[in-house]
Design a protein around this nucleic acid. Structure first.
Lengths: 235, 235
DNA sequence: GAGTGGACTCGAACGCTGTGCGAGACCCGC
DNA sequence: GCGGGTCTCGCACAGCGTTCGAGTCCACTC
């Protein structure tokens, strides 16, 4: 940023405190650091510096780092889409939801580290579960089966994506297939068959393979849910 | 610890170096700390103290803390059971595997924090995936469906258990239902319906509910897999 | 205009972390 | 006795989250 001729003497009334610090601003900056550099790179000092503020100033707006993480975490949950079940078929709603959730986790890899550490109890997360439950009810599930259904599809998507993201991280962040395969080869000398199949598997487009594998399991879950729906048990 | 009359002069030949430090010993002690106090409580200094050694002595046997965590992590994977597919039905093998994996994660809650952070490439983890693949082949899956099947069941179990463990942690480690419900009530004032259902849901035995929900999703996945097996596609 | 009180910022400091470094201790084969 | 490899560890460094208390600024009231 080029500086005009202006100094302490000629500046406008309120330049340093430009609207001050706000909670939303802090959360937004934190998310940017997290997305760009990962969970371990986020420190209060760095975050303060990014906002042209002292590290300890943040503690006026946020109780501590954990609370800050909860805020960013819930913000990320807010990006997950779940179509209106009144306008779309049940399976389509769930499919869109599943892909949207996976997408959010891929775009914010730090989420996967938080899922195992703190419960998602923020307003966005609650809104999402509420809407997910409504979608299941709309589809015809009743009683405790609503819970079970929500848990089933949620579990699958999380469980598929979390290790996936861990692998991407382990490979250096850019899904470098060669290094993954190399690591497996180095570690798995005792299982030549497994190594060979892995190598064969990943010689094709990895993104396409990932999408197919995700879809396969998703269809399994949805088929399983649908057959239970048709049996119409309802605890 | 009370000290006998003994000093530098009267001690026996090799008292301090009592068999020295070993990698296995370190990993074992680390696992004990992790199980008892959680991931964040593990520090190199504390681990050294537990072994009556200096913190930096550990670095002779282990490259750094991350490598140490990989070792303990893989050790935990080694505890997961997968029955011999020659002696048991396919679905039973998978069910036992699923419950054993869930059990391992429940007993070592720190695992859930590591799954999203590092890939499971240790010998125990590789052996397990190798055996899982063999079980799927034995069941009749072929080609790429073997991978897809492994991913599907693995994903479901991980995805179900990881948030579950996070909730237990959030509730203070002892699955204190009241505090979970209270937290939801506090956070979810906008979704009275959801809160009411949660409260109703958890008023019964939580462990039983957890088992039922887990089983429900597991059956969905297994049914979905089985129907695909019968169709006998095989990419 | 002077004064007061709340909102907000921030530098210094504390106790903690992982880890590099170099000095030392111990034991074995010469 | 004497290297030399194996192993231990105290010191130090940079960084962390967080507390505390002093200080700045703004809006308001006399």
């Amino acid at each position: 940023m080029t500086k005009q001729f202006s100094s302490v003497w000629t500046r406008e009334p309120h330049p340093p405190r430009q609207a001050g610090l706000s909670r939303e601003q802090i959360v937004k900056a934190a998310q940017e650091i997290l997305d760009a550099e990962g969970l371990e790179a986020l420190s209060m000092r760095k975050l303060g510096a990014k906002l042209n503020a002292g590290a300890t100033s943040l503690y006026w707006h946020v109780a501590n780092k954990d609370e800050l993480l909860e805020l960013v975490y819930d913000e990320a949950w807010g990006a997950v889409r779940l179509p209106d079940p009144d306008e779309t078929s049940w399976r389509e709603v769930m499919t869109t939801f599943a892909y949207s959730l996976q997408d959010a986790m891929m775009r914010h890899p730090w989420m996967t580290s938080l899922i195992g550490r703190m419960a998602a109890l923020g307003p966005n997360a609650l809104r999402l579960t509420d809407r997910l439950r409504k979608a299941f009810k709309k589809a015809g599930f009743t009683g405790i089966d609503v819970d079970f259904g929500c848990a089933a599809i949620m579990s699958y998507v999380l469980g598929y994506t979390i290790p996936q993201v861990a692998w991407i991280k382990a490979a250096g962040g850019d899904y470098d297939l060669d290094s993954i395969v190399a690591a497996i080869e180095r570690a798995g000398a005792d299982y030549p068959e497994l190594v060979a199949e892995y190598r064969d598997l990943h010689s094709h487009d990895p993104a396409a393979h990932r999408a197919m594998a995700f879809d396969f399991g998703l269809l399994c879950v949805l088929d399983g849910l649908e057959s239970r729906l048709r049996k119409g048990a309802g605890s």
